[in-house]
Amino acid sequence: MKKLYLFDFDGTLTYKDTLFLYLKFYNSRKFTFQFIKHIPLFVLLKMKLLEAEKVKKSFISGVLKGQSRTQIEKKSQEFFETYYPQIFRDNALDFIKNIDPEKTESYIVTASLDIWVQPFADHFKMKLLATQAEFKDHIFTGNFASKNCNGAEKLHRIKEVLAGKRYDKTIAFGDTAGDKEMMDWADESQFEFFH
């Protein structure tokens, strides 16, 4: 019996969204400045007058653009060491601890950027499907190398990576509308399972 687990990250496995947490951890001064600068955009986003992907890209770029891959990876590892395990739901950690890697393949499927989720995925021995940061000559351009990994894009990325693979059962875990397509596609879906 070969199972496939698909876990959303922010809010499903964790108590809080990691985007603001990571950017503030990376550079709190820049974060505060960019946060204030982006307030009008956040308001428009709430009113559904702007695309989430554009605001997200602009905010992340404001803090991280021009940083080297080495520096970002170093900070991401420090972020993991600082916030693991306290930002994770106890039920989620218990569940992950009991996964049999012989019989199960597990993926974290997240709209968060690969740069800061990767150390968590590595720790859990899971594969990662995330929004990808774009680097040129090892410098972060402020752009994404992939589409924002949310909603229909989550399912697109899953199908792409699983092409030709077979599982007896696929179970998806999520907590927002951004997980709907992934959860509808899975054999079984668990909404707010670890809450």
Rank of each mutant, 00 (worst) to 15 (best):
Phe88Ser: 14
Asp90Lys: 15
Asp90Trp: 03
Leu93Phe: 09
Asp94Leu: 13
Asp94Thr: 11
Phe95Glu: 08
Pro101Asp: 09
Pro101Glu: 09
Glu102Trp: 05
Glu105Gln: 15
Ile108His: 05
Ile108Asp: 01
Ile108Tyr: 02
Val109Lys: 10
Ala111Met: 11
Ala111Lys: 12
Ile115Phe: 15
Val117Trp: 07
Gln118Gly: 00
Phe120Asp: 04
Ala121Asn: 09
Ala121Leu: 10
Asp122Leu: 10
Asp122Ser: 11
Phe124Cys: 00
Leu128Lys: 06
Leu129Trp: 08
Leu129His: 07
Ala130Lys: 07
Ala130Thr: 11
Ala130Ile: 06
Gln132Met: 09
Ala133Cys: 12
Glu134Cys: 06
Phe135Ile: 04
Phe135Leu: 07
Lys136Pro: 02
Lys136Cys: 04
Asp137Glu: 15
Asp137Trp: 05
Asp137Ser: 13
His138Trp: 05
Ile139Ala: 04
Ile139Val: 13
Ile139Phe: 12
Asn143Glu: 15
Ala145Cys: 02
Lys147His: 14
Lys147Thr: 04
Asn148Ile: 02
Asn148Phe: 09
Asn150Met: 06
Asn150Gly: 02
Gly151Ala: 09
Ala152Tyr: 07
Ala152Ile: 11
Glu153Trp: 11
Glu153Phe: 11
Leu155Phe: 12
Ile158Ser: 02
Lys159Gly: 06
Glu160Ile: 03
Glu160Gln: 09
Val161Met: 01
Val161Leu: 05
Val161Trp: 01
Ala163Gln: 10
Gly164Trp: 00
Gly164Tyr: 00
Lys165Gln: 13
Arg166Thr: 09
Tyr167Val: 01
Tyr167Trp: 00
Tyr167Lys: 00
Lys169His: 03
Thr170Lys: 10
Ile171Glu: 08
Ala172Ile: 05
Ala172Trp: 00
Phe173Pro: 06
